[in-house]
Nucleic acid binder design. Sequence first.
DNA 1: GACGTCAAGATTATCAACAATAATGGCTAC
DNA 2: GTAGCCATTATTGTTGATAATCTTGACGTC
Lengths: 233, 233
Amino acid sequence: MSTSPRRSPGRSADEAYQEVRQAIHSGELMPNERLTEAALAERLQVSRAVVRTVLVRLGQDGLVVLTPNRGAHVRMVTEEEAVEILQARTVLEALTARQAALNATAREVTSIRRALDRMAEKLDKGDLLGYSEGNAKLHAAIIAASRNETVARLIADLRAHMVRFQFRTILVPDRPGTSFGEHAAIVEAIAARDPDAAEAAMRDHLQQVESTLAKTATAIKRRSGQPNSNRVA
Amino acid sequence: MSTSPRRSPGRSADEAYQEVRQAIHSGELMPNERLTEAALAERLQVSRAVVRTVLVRLGQDGLVVLTPNRGAHVRMVTEEEAVEILQARTVLEALTARQAALNATAREVTSIRRALDRMAEKLDKGDLLGYSEGNAKLHAAIIAASRNETVARLIADLRAHMVRFQFRTILVPDRPGTSFGEHAAIVEAIAARDPDAAEAAMRDHLQQVESTLAKTATAIKRRSGQPNSNRVA
DNA sequence: GACGTCAAGATTATCAACAATAATGGCTAC
DNA sequence: GTAGCCATTATTGTTGATAATCTTGACGTC
């Protein structure tokens, strides 16, 4: 009962923002879905005014688009844009790998190694979803070890835009297996305190992801003709 | 008379946002300066409500910090953060140089070359401010030629945070001269359609800027003791 | 039947008044 | 003279009402 006891939940302004962000991330709010202020106010149990500032904030970080006098809708990121985002992530995460090799404490290296081990376990079990989670945790551990708040924030922002594509690459046959090897190379380079190797390994890895993404994109286009279908096959 | 004729200027919401952004960029609004809603409303000739959304937007892109119930002030970026920002810019602009080498049209290459020529003229004349402007234009031309909207936006956002440091590096003795050589190498590599060389050259260039910035930062600290003084010497 | 016009409804934008909160300065007690 | 308390003021936060704008569907004309 730390929150206000009156009425229904009645979130604060920032909680409302986080909730909508999460809803977009989870796919509960789909791309191109219209967001009317009244409906959101009802759903979040807040006033229209706070819905308004939530939408302004989301608009500013590019998750929704605001059209004057016409309201807001969840932004739809195209395949082409996803490739651009991934290209940006590639060089930024390569930078974090480099800096992790330079700055990581022994403790952090251990935690990075453990994350890799967990990925191996999931892979052996054929647990693709678990593998994907482990993958995210490994990247997070590397980013933390790089001690670069600014780059960490940039990467997080970029990731938020890629939700629609987050599982696509992991689903192509053989990809998880080769992906694991790529991660192992990154971890080894960081543990060996070799910044050039760490950067190169991370770059290789994400370029593989990029080309996989580009391939599945054209494959999907070829199959469906319409550039519209968002559903994962 | 395309704008509404009534009252004083009376900007629109987006114009107000741009105006405050510009004011922060130009240094008219200084770091740590408090921004009261009423004062801004008066200055911009808009209602408090639109000032509020302007502040929310600026808060979201990290140019001002909003403290609940205590208002907003212009965000002060530290030397350490400036280095982080520059590190991010380094890898992102290196990416644009690579992509420019791959994607630039003949026309764009010409325009990039011309930008370099103009920098040479300014340098010969000893016009440092003009040289700095030319520098910005060259980078902009390369970014445009890279055809990567996403990365272009990221770089622009990062630049917006570096206003306090924008002239510091250009003012150290000999720096403009060596800087010009670095730029020439970038342009040549792009014109030669050599993506690896273009990326490496851009990276070298910005790493030079980074280390120059770091050096002047420690130099200033050593001189003043207080980590507070923002004024350019 | 297609097109354009117009009115009704829905939604966003703006505004002013009020409430809540934090900063300020003076006052008293010690 | 200093510290703590309290009233005053300044500023932000919230609400509800109203205005402006867009969408939709009906209607009439060609």
